[in-house]
Amino acid sequence: MNKKKRRLLFISHAEKDSEIVSEFVDLLYNIGLRTEDMFCSSRTDLDIAIGEDIYDYLRKTLDLDDVITVFMLSDNYYKSAACLNEMGAVWLKQSSYYTFLLPEFEYKDIKGAINANVKGIKLDITNKRLNGDLTNFKKRIENDFGIKPSDCIEINRWEKQRDHFVDFINKYSNEIKIDLANYRGYCIHEENYGGCKVVYDNTTNVIQTTFDFSKTNSQVCSVVFFVGEINVLKKLQNNKHLSFMLKADNEIDVTVELRLKNQDAQHKIHTTKDWTEYSIPLKEFGGATDNWKVLTEIKFLTFRKEIRAETIYIKDIVLT
C-alpha cells in the first residue's frame, strides 16, 4: 500500500491571536504532525528561517500543490492586510482549507473568499461538542497526512492535550482579567490629587482607595484602571458581565464608569462593609453599540454631595 504524500499545513492567523494559535499547534503535534508538516509564522519552531525573504517564502509556500490551509478567523484576522492577502491567495488556487472560528467570532462575521456555508469548527461552544469536532478534525488530518493512529499511550496523550486545549479555550473566551496594578487616582479638575489616595497590595492583589473631600475642591474623585484598548462589543452582544469584589468602611453609593470609544457609560452600586461580588450586565451601562468596540478605562467614582470621606477596597475585576 502506498503511503499518502506528506503535505504542508499552513496556519493562517492574525499576530494578535498568537496565544491561542500556539496552543492549537501543540494540539497538532499530538495528532502526529511533524515540524516539517506545518508552517505557522508566530511559532519560532515553524516560522521562516532567518535570512529568508518573508513575502517570497509565503508566495512559494502558497503556490505549492499540496498545501492545506487552516484559517483561524477572528476580528483581528479581518483587520490584518497580510491575512486577507493569504485568504485571497488560497481562493485563487482553490486550495483545500479548514476554518476555525475563534471565541466571540460568528459565522455571520465571515466575509470575503471563505464560504460561510462550509462547516467549520467554532471554538466557543459546549465542551462536549468541541471535543467531538476536534476528534473529527484529528481524523481528517490523519487522513490528509497519512498518519496512522498508534497505541493507547499516544491516544491518551492526544486526549489529554485536547482536554487541555478545551480548558484553555474556556478560560480564553470567558474572561478578561483586569490588571489592578495599572491604576491611577484622580480628583476631577484638580492637579492636586490629595483627596484620592490609592494603595495597591500586590501580595493580596487588592486596591485600597481613600476618598477625602476635605483635601480637594473637586466634586468628583475616582480610581481608574487602564485596560489598553479592548473590543468588548461581542461581550455586550452576548450578554456578558463586568464582575468585581468590593467592600467599603461604610455603606455608600459608588458609580462604576466605563470609558468607551466616544462616551462614558455608568452604573451605580451600593456598597457593603463585607466583601461583596458585583456582577453587572454590560447592557445595563447603556451607551451606543458601536462605542463598545473600544474600552480603555474602568473607573470607580465618588461624589462630594454623597460622602465626605470613605475608603473602598477592590479586587478581582473581570469581564466575563
Rank of each mutant, 00 (worst) to 15 (best):
K3M: 03
R6I: 07
R7G: 10
D17S: 14
D17C: 15
E19A: 15
S22E: 12
Y29H: 00
I31H: 01
E36H: 11
D37E: 07
M38T: 01
F39W: 05
F39A: 01
T44Q: 11
D45Y: 07
D53E: 15
Y57F: 14
L62N: 01
F71D: 00
A81D: 12
A81S: 11
L84F: 03
M87C: 06
M87S: 10
V90A: 12
L92A: 05
S96M: 03
T99C: 00
L101K: 05
L102I: 04
E106P: 08
D124V: 01
T126V: 07
G132H: 09
D133A: 01
K138H: 06
E142T: 07
F145R: 13
P149T: 07
S150A: 07
N156L: 03
Q161G: 00
R162N: 00
H164S: 02
V166I: 03
N170Y: 01
N170C: 01
C187A: 13
I188L: 10
H189S: 12
Y193G: 15
C196A: 15
V199T: 12
D201C: 03
T203E: 15
T204N: 13
N205M: 14
T209E: 13
T216W: 03
N217G: 01
S218P: 00
S218D: 07
C221R: 05
V224K: 10
N231G: 00
Q237V: 04
M245F: 14
K247T: 09
D253F: 12
D253H: 14
E257S: 10
E257C: 09
K261V: 02
K261W: 15
T271S: 09
T272M: 06
K273A: 07
L282S: 05
K293V: 02
K299L: 03
A309W: 05
